[in-house]
Design a protein around this nucleic acid. Structure first.
Length: 634
DNA sequence: GTAGGGTTAG
């Protein structure tokens, strides 16, 4: 530009800011701010777009305070916020569930004489749908229509998504029909949403039917469509099909993306197949795809599950240096990990660390902390956190309330549990199956079995949907009281409703039979079980318990030696050598241990260090260069 | 606007 004697203008600056701010990486919004300051020094006059771009950057990093501050300083530069400014902020706030800020902002918007446009309404509809408040969402649409703005395809897709998330697929399908009547053609997004919705409630044949229907209408499946199907295979544990789906995707000339790989990595992690995890991560790298926050969090979770808290913590605290954006999920994952490891102090400390880093927790992460506190008998402290989140304008959900009810029950304070439950009922809290089971278990623990049975009967007569946990809770309690015949009565009832019996039921029953000196009947029970092959397998697994998980790492002695070599190299940071050694072992057909795979996977994650820092530096260079060009051309 | 990571009960 300089050579051509062209002067960079506002558009140059905005474009630069846009590309810099829209890639969420560490400190990208800070870099934007720096760039703007530099530009201001040179005498640039920002326009409303400049500010909107910066606000979007802040929102991407959930720095709402900064974004709002920017909104209020625009006037100093002769700019007035427009609908885009407000919509940007509203959208981000809705996504984080910060409803009180949304309300304030809408009032603020009104006071400036701006009227919500269709995007604004759609953002609000989405916000309510994400909270699961479909009635409120419908109300927004009414207001919208009243103000002369008709719902468009986005509005419908948002609503369909909201219904699918609640498992109300049939209503979602009706909306699709309604769309067609209004000549708003359902598009790829509509179908992806519906297909995903069907899978979520295990209606896979409907999902595949929709996939065919979609193709029949000339709508070509896109990456998301494939990712949805692949996710279903993963959920079903059909990893063969999942990896086939990956291949098919490539054959269809669609490129698998981070989502695709993260889905697979997560599934392999959960299956304990670290060899495949490693393979997938490697493949990602070969395709030029960078691992992101989700990949990181998946692995953090995996480490926590393995109770390798020290390694998880190390990874968490060094991740941002490696160019990863650490988020509330990363922290939440470790907080749960520490609570499960009975290290509540570290969990709470981590929460404070997160806050110090200005990472804003959503209700999800609050629930992790509250749940942990309740499990260690610190319900009072948990209520303190509940109040805190309310003050922050977050809305608690069923999980929040259930955790606290569980906390009271666990402390043996049944009265307070019910009292809290009743008070929450007045606050639009809808008890779910978890609530029922928690209360039931609470009563049973406190020797109030009669009350529990009575409550159960009222639920039955009200036609409430109960599950196997409900039955097992009562069966277990009856067994402990030696009321075997009553327990067997419930087993029969459970069987009638096709809810079991399952391994929990059998464990309760066998224990009770043995205690009653009726070992012979245990035999009978076991033989009944043999007809239900899977259940027996489960019982055996539960009996063996920890032994299985401990020994799953067992391999022959030589492989232990080889594995140690790999681990050692990784610890020394000699990742390349470790990889080479690994390659040799694979060729020789030597299997390596889980721990060695973990070392290799960490290596892959850590390797991002060089890539990322080079990346950031490059940005910086370009930035400085842009600056000098701007400066010298003036 | 759709797809990936984490939170509640036996």
């Amino acid at each position: 530009m300089k050579r051509l004697r062209m002067v960079p203008n506002l558009i140059t600056c905005n474009t630069l800011l846009n590309s810099l701010g829209s890639t969420p990486s560490t400190r990208s919004s800070d870099l934007c701010k720096e760039l703007l300051n530099d530009a201001l020094k040179i005498g640039f006059k920002p326009n409303v777009n400049t500010f909107n771009i910066l606000m979007r950057g802040y929102c991407l990093e959930h720095k709402f305070e900064n974004a709002i501050e920017l909104l209020n300083t625009m006037q100093d530069f002769d700019c007035q916020p427009d609908n885009v400014s407000y919509n940007t902020l509203l959208n981000a706030l809705c996504k984080k569930g910060q409803l009180n800020k949304v309300r304030d902002l809408l009032l603020d918007m009104k006071s400036r004489g701006l009227t919500p446009n269709r995007n604004t309404y759609n953002i609000l509809v989405d916000g309510y749908c994400k909270m699961g408040w479909l009635k409120d969402a419908a109300q927004v649409i009414e207001v919208m229509t009243h103000n002369g703005l008709l719902p468009n395809i986005w509005t419908y897709n948002i609503l369909i998504h909201g219904l699918c998330n609640k498992g109300r697929i049939d209503e979602a399908l009706k909306l699709r029909d309604e769309m067609e009547g209004l000549k708003l053609c359902p598009d790829v997004v509509t179908y992806n949403t519906l297909i995903n919705g069907c899978f979520q409630i295990n209606r896979s044949s409907d999902a595949f039917k929709l996939l065919e229907e979609m193709k029949g209408k000339g709508l070509k499946p896109v990456e998301v469509t494939h990712n949805v199907v692949l996710k279903w295979y993963c959920k079903e544990g059909k990893m063969r099909e999942a990896s086939d789906a990956l291949r098919i995707m490539e054959e269809d000339n669609l490129s698998p993306d981070c989502m695709t790989f993260n889905t697979l990595i997560n599934a392999y992690c959960k299956a304990g197949n670290l060899a495949e995890v490693f393979k997938m991560m490697n493949k990602m790298g070969c395709k030029g795809l960078k691992m992101d926050t989700v990949s990181l969090n998946t692995f953090l979770h995996s480490l926590c599950q393995e109770r390798r808290l020290a390694e998880a913590y190390e990874l968490l605290t060094t991740a941002s240096k490696r160019g990863y954006v650490v988020d509330e999920v990363s922290y939440g994952t470790l907080i749960v990990g520490y609570f499960k490891d009975e290290n509540a102090d570290r969990a709470i400390k981590l929460w404070d660390e997160m806050k110090e880093k200005n990472i804003i927790p959503s209700i999800f992460t609050y629930n992790s902390l509250i749940g942990g506190l309740c499990k260690i008998g610190k319900t009072e402290q948990a209520i303190g956190k509940l109040n805190e989140l309310l003050e922050n304008g977050l809305v608690p959900n069923e999980i929040t309330y259930n955790s606290i009810i569980h906390g009271f029950c666990w402390e043996g304070n049944i009265e307070r549990a019910f009292h809290f439950h009743n008070k929450m009922l007045e606050n639009s809290f809808k008890p779910d199956i978890f609530t029922c089971n928690i209360l039931l278990r609470g009563l049973c623990r406190e020797q109030m079995l009669e009350k529990a049975l009575k409550l159960f009967d009222t639920w039955i007569s009200k036609g409430k949907v109960l599950d196997s946990v409900t039955y097992n809770t009562l069966i277990g309690a009856l067994c402990r009281e030696g009321r075997l015949e009553d327990a067997l009565g419930l087993v029969a009832e459970m069987q009638e409703k096709k809810l079991g019996p399952d391994s929990y039921t059998y464990n309760a029953l066998t224990g009770a039979f043995v205690d009653a000196g009726r070992e012979d009947q245990v035999e009978e029970l076991i033989s009944k079980l043999t007809d239900r092959g899977i259940a027996l397998q489960q019982v055996i697994e539960i009996k063996k318990g920890d032994v299985i998980s401990e020994s799953s790492d067992y391999l022959d002695p030589s492989s232990i030696l080889y594995s140690e070599q790999i681990t050692d190299l990784c610890t020394e940071g000699r990742f390349k050598d470790a990889m080479q050694l690994f390659g040799e072992f694979i060729q020789k057909g030597i299997a390596i241990q889980k721990s060695a795979y973990i070392a290799l996977i960490s290596g892959l994650i850590k390797r991002r260090k060089s890539i990322r820092s080079a990346h950031v530096l490059q940005w910086f260079f370009e930035l400085k260069e842009a600056h000098s060009i701007i400066a010298s051309s003036l």
